[in-house]
């Protein structure tokens, strides 16, 4: 029986060494230092909201996002021994999440339910979460309008543009990390970002 090769896994791509790269982590000599990945409660508490935001706005479906985030945390916890610390836990989790979203997107089932989905993001609801310490009622209203407008525009972007935009500007990932997670060259990532920013700027300009 062939041994499991994590480097070939589609779910955990970014932190595994390439197939022929020698392993740098001593297999048994030194135990892996404990990380937050070892504590499932801490993992959920610290990372679930951010992952939920990413997957919700990437898929545009809050209900589906709940399921994918749950899968993501469970897979990460079960595969925590494979985490080598090459990137932050945030980045690693986002990479797993984006692979789960892409896997799900490939299925016919997703396309069908995307057409018939009853669950969509309520941008007004999202905008209502604007920080209340914002100075003055007018400033808060303007901020809410900006958030609602941007949420709507992000929904109109293509999947790649939207996902890469969220990785860069919401999750603050490096271009190289996005490139690894999305399995595309850095220049392609930059092109998607340029297009996303242009679309957002044009549409925001048209609304103001």
């Amino acid at each position: 029986m062939a041994a499991f090769n994590p480097a070939s896994s589609r779910i955990f791509p970014s932190t595994f060494p390439a197939k022929d790269t020698p392993r740098t982590w001593p297999a048994e000599a030194e135990p892996r230092p404990a990380t937050e990945l070892d504590d499932i409660d801490a993992l959920v508490k610290n990372h679930r909201p951010r992952l939920l935001r990413f997957v919700t706005f990437s898929t545009g479906d809050p209900d589906l996002a709940e399921t994918i985030v749950q899968d993501c945390l469970l897979k990460a916890y079960n595969a925590r021994a494979s985490f080598r610390g090459d990137s932050s836990v945030n980045t690693w989790l986002t990479s797993i999440a984006v692979n789960l979203v892409r896997d799900h997107q490939r299925t016919q089932k997703f396309r069908f339910w995307k057409q018939a989905r009853a669950s969509a993001i309520d941008v007004t609801d999202v905008a209502s979460f604007i920080a209340s310490e914002e100075s003055g009622l007018e400033a808060r209203l303007i901020a809410r309008q900006k958030v609602a407008a941007l949420s709507q525009i992000i929904e109109t972007l293509s999947f790649n543009q939207r996902t890469i935009f969220l990785m860069k500007f919401s999750d603050e990932m490096e271009l190289s990390e996005i490139s690894a997670a999305m399995k595309m060259p850095v220049n392609t990532v930059k092109t998607h970002l340029h297009r996303a920013l242009k679309a957002i700027r044009n549409q925001l300009g048209g609304r103001s």
Binding site: R53, A131, A143, V147, S170
Partner: peptide
């Protein structure tokens, strides 16, 4: 503003 609101919403 979008990041702050969307994270609070997800939280």
């Amino acid at each position: 503003a979008y990041n702050v609101a969307s994270l609070a919403w997800a939280q």
